[in-house]
């Protein structure tokens, strides 16, 4: 076996489109944005807070007194992003800025489309550039622009009677480049070759598959590799009647905790080619592999386990057998 583990890296997207409810304060602000208007809220000390807070930052009082604020104001501070990131609201260079709108006492954070850094200056006047289509979202402000170059609005005001905003959809998707741990990479590389290889704890001698590079009970690293057989015993199981999202398996299907011969810990896998009503704790099963050409770095190389013609293992022996040391 090669000493160096293969480095397994893969991009993945972590994300969800969250369905947020706004409550009255955020809702009123977003409803105003949809109408291309700015609304701040009066704080306990009389200052107009922008964007409106639900609760006063000083005395924690619940706030409710809205105040109309202009859609133009002054840049209080800013930074120039010469190379925007993919997630950023602008594809070309832009400024993040703290902008104090006329009629507000606090600055709000948004972005400014100024074309060039030389056009940015603290104290400069900027005006909101409204999106062509507004929907009650913070991006209804399609950035701010220097007031001098702001165009007169050319969008058509809608006079449709719309419900106030009470909920919004917030897509939050981020890309990660995930690298598998050493033990996992070794294990998956072996799986790709059709082998089930676990690791033995140097301390308690128990064998783990999939191996995680450590024995969680002893808190020590595990390195010694142990090749295990295709045969396993059902430690327990459930018959699942609900579908797994994005998975072709149709319910009902059996998920079993399986202990491979020679291993001391179970893992979950599918059980098939069996009568669901005749699955038993202690039942003997073996792996059914996909065709070799479909093998990858994944446990899915094993399609499922199926029963074999061997007597059931007594319950008290399941997972207790120490493999040859």
């Amino acid at each position: 076996m090669s000493a160096a583990a293969e480095l397994l890296s893969q991009e993945f997207t972590l994300g969800y489109t969250y369905t947020r409810t706004t409550g009255p304060v955020v809702g009123e602000f977003l409803t105003a944005l949809r109408d291309r208007k700015m609304r701040g809220i009066k704080g306990s000390d009389g200052r107009v807070l922008m964007p409106p807070m639900e609760y006063d930052p000083v005395d924690a009082a619940a706030l409710s007194e809205f105040v109309d604020v202009a859609d133009c104001g002054e840049v209080v501070s800013w930074t120039w992003v010469s190379q925007p990131r993919k997630a950023h609201p602008s594809d070309s260079a832009f400024a993040w800025a703290l902008i104090k709108l006329d009629g507000a006492d606090t600055a709000m954070l948004h972005w400014v489309d100024a074309g060039d850094e030389s056009a940015m200056k603290t104290g400069m006047r900027v005006k909101a550039r409204w999106a062509n289509e507004t929907k009650g979202f913070i991006t209804d402000i399609n950035g701010f622009v220097p007031e001098a170059v702001a165009l007169v609005a050319d969008y058509v005001e809608s006079d449709a009677e719309l419900e106030p905003i009470s909920g919004i959809e917030c897509p939050s998707y981020m890309t990660y480049n995930f690298t598998a741990g050493k033990a996992t990479a070794r294990y998956l590389a072996q799986l790709r070759n059709g082998k089930l290889v676990g690791q033995r704890c140097p301390n308690c001698a128990n064998v783990y598959i999939p191996p995680r590079g450590s024995c969680a009970a002893c808190g020590v690293p595990t390195e010694e590799e142990v090749e295990l057989s295709n045969k396993a015993t059902v430690e327990s199981y459930t018959i699942v009647y609900i579908p797994i999202p994005n998975n072709p398996i149709k319910p009902p299907y059996v998920i079993a905790n399986l202990v491979l011969d020679g291993a001391n810990l179970s893992f979950l896998h599918l059980l098939s080619e069996c009568d669901n009503n005749n699955v038993r704790i202690g039942m003997r099963v073996e792996a059914v592999w996909k065709p070799k050409e479909e093998w990858g770095y994944a446990m899915e190389n094993i399609k499922y386990f199926k029963p074999i013609d061997e007597p059931d293992m007594p319950v008290e022996q399941i997972g207790k057998q120490k493999s040859g040391e």
Partner: peptide, 30 residues
Amino acid sequence: SESNAMWALSNPQPFSPHLNAGAGGYFAPI
């Protein structure tokens, strides 16, 4: 309700245990 508690966490992180049948899939065998 902002997400879906059972599946929002079953993100497709590569190289991780492949089978997710929800919390019940974990606890029912026990």
